[in-house]
């Protein structure tokens, strides 16, 4: 009980302190919006968020794909049985609905990937839709052998990092600077990176779900 009150008071103090800090900030905070818009014409895309993510701070995105990959490795390392993955639901409605939705979802994800260059959208949104499609297929009870024992599946998971490394090598060769895209080719580079990221994110998220979902419920 004493610990509870103590923690409560402590968090309350933290809240008060941070509130004071936020209120003390000047109204006109200086961000990087202007700097970004000055360089937009060199970025190869017209959506500023994509420009930051895939060009100005593309290195962060490379490391972040690494984080996602590591999480999958960690989940794999603890997964016990990879053999039987029984779907939870046996519903004919779901099956039919899946049949209609899957092509639509894939189309939607392709659209999001493409629109990301100009408007909100991009690899992460498209990738999550791909993984949702995978989950829908799995829940509908369709057979889908995407175990990481297949080289092809592992390649799909690693696609994004491989493309990143390839483009890193090209840019280092061109200008001795990592991930420096020549403005005229920037949009091609970015599209390549985003397409690869979509595939990897989609497959990785789907596998994360699958491995966690099909953990045995009891110790054998």
């Amino acid at each position: 009980m004493i610990i509870r009150i103590f923690t409560f008071i402590l968090t309350l103090l933290l809240f008060a302190g941070l509130t004071y800090t936020v209120l003390s900030l000047p109204k006109q905070t200086k961000g990087l919006g202007e700097t970004v818009s000055l360089q937009m014409h060199n970025s190869g895309v017209s959506n500023p968020v994509t420009a930051v993510l895939m060009n100005f701070r593309a290195y962060d995105t490379l490391l972040e794909m690494g984080v996602l990959f590591i999480a999958l490795l960690g989940v794999y390392s603890l997964s016990t049985s990879q053999k039987e993955k029984k779907p939870l639901l046996q519903s004919s409605v779901l099956k039919r609905l899946g049949g209609i939705l899957v092509p639509l979802l894939l189309l939607l994800s392709a659209y999001l990937l493409w629109i990301g260059a100009h408007a909100p959208g991009g690899a992460f949104q498209a990738g999550s839709i791909v993984s949702a499609t995978g989950i829908l297929i799995f829940l509908s009870g369709w057979k889908l052998d995407l175990s990481a024992r297949h080289f092809f599946v592992r390649l799909l998971i690693g696609t994004s990092l491989l493309v990143f490394l390839l483009i890193s090598a090209v840019t280092l060769f061109l200008s001795h600077t990592l991930l420096e895209f020549p403005p005229s080719y920037a949009s091609a580079f970015i599209f390549l990176l985003e397409a690869a990221a979509t595939v990897s994110i989609g497959v990785t998220l789907f596998h994360l779900f699958l491995s966690i979902f099909s953990q045995p419920k009891e110790e054998h």
Binding site: G33, V49, R57, D60, A71, G74
Partner: peptide
């Protein structure tokens, strides 16, 4: 106009959060 840098940071942060949650 809106500052896009925090938006990009948050996308990075969300991916990290998903990974950590899965693990």
């Amino acid at each position: 106009q809106q500052d896009p840098v925090p938006h990009a940071m948050i996308i990075t942060g969300i991916v990290v959060a998903i990974s950590a949650t899965a693990l």
